[in-house]
């Protein structure tokens, strides 16, 4: 393995380096580990039927072939495949993980049904239940987008007000500190009474989860702005409007982003609770529904989708942050 890592940096000398220029060694090893996993999946019998076993074997078998092709192609494509080559060790590890997972669940039954599921169990869920999952993703996306963005908008405005105005902070800060730690499920009775529909109540819960960290961190950010910036701006002829929008807000933006990242995670964590409120579809609903029926393979399948969506959104937020906060480079 350590050799495989070395070859990534092209630091191996002699006969090795000659071979490295012809073949991508990590690709070859990944092909081997994926091929091994495919063979185990196909050749050994499952202790209980999971469905989709042969399909899963085919999928990772194709993956293995793909790595075989890549191990020849990568050295010839040079720069363009740098990212691919960088993740080489990960590909090998994923193949090994598939093989281990396969053996301890489906093949030996050490981790039994229904609490655990082999990869083909998840694959089986995706191919049999994809329509419902797709609807659930759409419903959750609608709820999340409405909740997250309204929460962030309100939280940001409240945070700026709290950080800027002493009077606002006098009344607002204690309230925020009190409601901040209240768990989302504790709001359910109130929300049922206040909001016209359960959907509105769900939006409120997501908004609350994402808005509170944004409000707290924005307020802290605005409060921490170096006083000299205000003095400079005032001697240059700035009015309050300028001080808020062109000094306080840009100066506190690094804090706001910390709040956004926290809000993003909290909003995903609260989805399950929010979709308890009479939702007909949604990933959170799907998780509860299948937990109730001990269909844990479906639970895992939905969790993976949620994790991937959340990771994707975090990535997007990072890109946005780097674009807006490019000026920070070298300061932190």
């Amino acid at each position: 393995m350590s050799d495989a890592v070395h070859s990534n940096f092209g630091a191996v000398s002699g006969a090795n380096s000659l071979r490295n220029t012809i073949l991508w060694r990590d690709g070859l090893l990944a092909a081997a580990s994926w091929g091994g996993a495919a063979t185990i999946t196909y050749a050994l019998p499952d202790v209980i039927s999971w469905g989709a076993t042969n399909l899963f074997a085919t999928v990772i078998g194709v993956g293995a072939l793909l790595f075989l092709v890549l191990s020849v192609a990568v050295p010839r494509l040079g720069e363009r495949t740098k990212t691919l080559a960088h993740y080489g060790p990960w590909f090998i590890a994923i193949g090994l993980w598939f093989a281990t997972w396969e053996i301890v669940t489906a093949k030996l039954g050490w981790l039994p049904k229904p609490f655990f599921s082999p990869p083909q169990g998840l694959l089986h869920v995706y191919i049999t239940d994809w329509e419902r999952l797709l609807i659930c993703v759409t419903y959750t996306a609608r709820l999340w987008v409405l909740g997250f963005f309204s929460g962030v908008a309100v939280g940001f405005v409240a945070g700026v007000a709290l950080g800027w105005s002493k009077r606002f902070a006098y009344w607002g800060m204690p309230v925020l500190k009190l409601i901040g730690p209240v768990p989302a499920s504790a709001w359910i009775p109130c929300t049922f009474f206040i909001f016209p529909s359960t959907f509105h109540a769900s939006i409120f819960l997501v908004a609350l989860a994402s808005g509170i960290p944004v409000a707290i961190l924005t307020a802290a950010g605005v409060g921490q702005v170096n006083r000299t910036y205000y003095d400079v701006a005032r001697t240059l002829g700035a009015d309050n409007r300028y001080l808020i929008f062109k000094v306080a807000i840009p100066a506190s933006l690094p804090n706001v982003f910390v709040g956004l990242f926290m809000g993003l995670y909290y909003s995903f964590a609260v989805l399950v609770v929010a979709e308890m409120l009479g939702a007909k579809f949604g990933l959170g609903w799907y998780l509860q529904f299948n937990t109730a029926y001990s269909a844990y393979a479906n639970v895992y399948a939905a969790l993976i989708i949620m994790a991937l969506i959340c990771a994707g959104l975090v990535r997007l937020l990072f890109i946005l942050r780097d674009r807006l906060l490019g000026w920070q480079k070298g300061i932190i």
Binding site: Y229, A233, T235, Y242, K246, V247, P250, A251, W327
Partner: peptide, 30 residues
């Protein structure tokens, strides 16, 4: 304060989120 009388501080106190050009433009903008 009035932009007819401008104070230059001991630290440059430039706005770190603005480029040099936009820092200089701050007073005109304000």
């Amino acid at each position: 304060p009035d932009p007819d009388r401008i104070l230059v501080f001991q630290e440059a106190s430039l706005f770190p989120w603005l480029t040099v050009r936009k820092n200089i433009a701050a007073g005109l903008d304000a």
